[in-house]
């Protein structure tokens, strides 16, 4: 029963949702709409599970002064502070149309935004370093990749477009690379992934794939 019931629920919900594509009737759409709403509520509820899980995983390490306990303490303190600030004056915030409380906005603008932007900006430095050290034309495939990457990078910016005489042709070649070989490969990947998703979806709906229920 412990396994049969989830499999049965998966089957019924899966069949109803797939049916939406074939039954364009408003009553049927109302049913699937209701199910989607349940799904959204469950997904939002998963945040609470995530919160509990985060505390369960990190708090014992902090208490026992385990490996990297300092980082974990920072994580938990940040979580508590952001959560408290996020909930503070919730009703007034909605009524006034303010985006958030001052403290929450301050955390977003002066802690989260710079940290997030810094992480993303560091990529430029690591790409430069990795490209210089590891991107070598060791064989035909690597050479092709190297030439395509350099061409697309160079012709995508004004300095490449503006090269006298050849700039125009570089852009045409770059567009061709993106529109023809890139698209051919992407489509093959998309179609392969879609077939895989259909097959996995069918296996889940029919109860043949049970790894999401734990074990096996």
């Amino acid at each position: 029963m412990k396994r049969t019931l989830p499999i049965l629920i998966t089957f019924v919900v899966g069949v109803i949702m797939v049916g939406e594509f074939f039954i364009p009737h408003w009553r049927y759409r109302a049913l699937t709409g209701e199910m989607l709403e349940w799904g959204i509520i469950l997904a939002a509820g998963a945040f609470i599970l995530g919160l509990i899980n985060l505390v369960q995983v990190h708090l014992p390490t902090v208490v026992q002064r385990g490996t990297d306990w300092g980082y974990k303490a920072v994580l938990l303190v940040s979580l508590a502070v952001t959560l408290t600030m996020g909930f503070a004056n919730g009703k007034e915030r909605l009524a006034s149309g303010m985006e958030a409380t001052f403290s929450y906005k301050w955390i977003f603008d002066f802690v989260y935004t710079p940290l997030s932007a810094t992480m993303f900006a560091l990529l430029a430095f690591y790409i430069a370093s990795a490209g210089f050290r590891a991107f070598r034309a060791r064989n035909a495939e690597a050479t092709l990749l190297l030439v395509a990457a350099a061409l697309v990078m160079f012709a995508s910016v004004p300095i490449g477009e503006g090269v006298p005489v050849i700039g125009e042709y570089l852009v045409v070649l770059k567009d061709w690379t993106l529109d023809v070989p890139n698209n051919a490969a992407r489509r093959a990947i998309f179609i392969g992934a879609a077939l895989g998703a259909i097959s996995t979806g069918l296996r889940v709906i029919l109860g043949l794939e049970r790894s999401h229920l734990g074990g096996e």
Binding site: F135, L146, S156
Partner: peptide
């Protein structure tokens, strides 16, 4: 972009 391309060329 130019800087990365120069690095790629010099590296190779």
């Amino acid at each position: 972009h130019l800087y990365i391309i120069i690095l790629l060329l010099l590296g190779n």
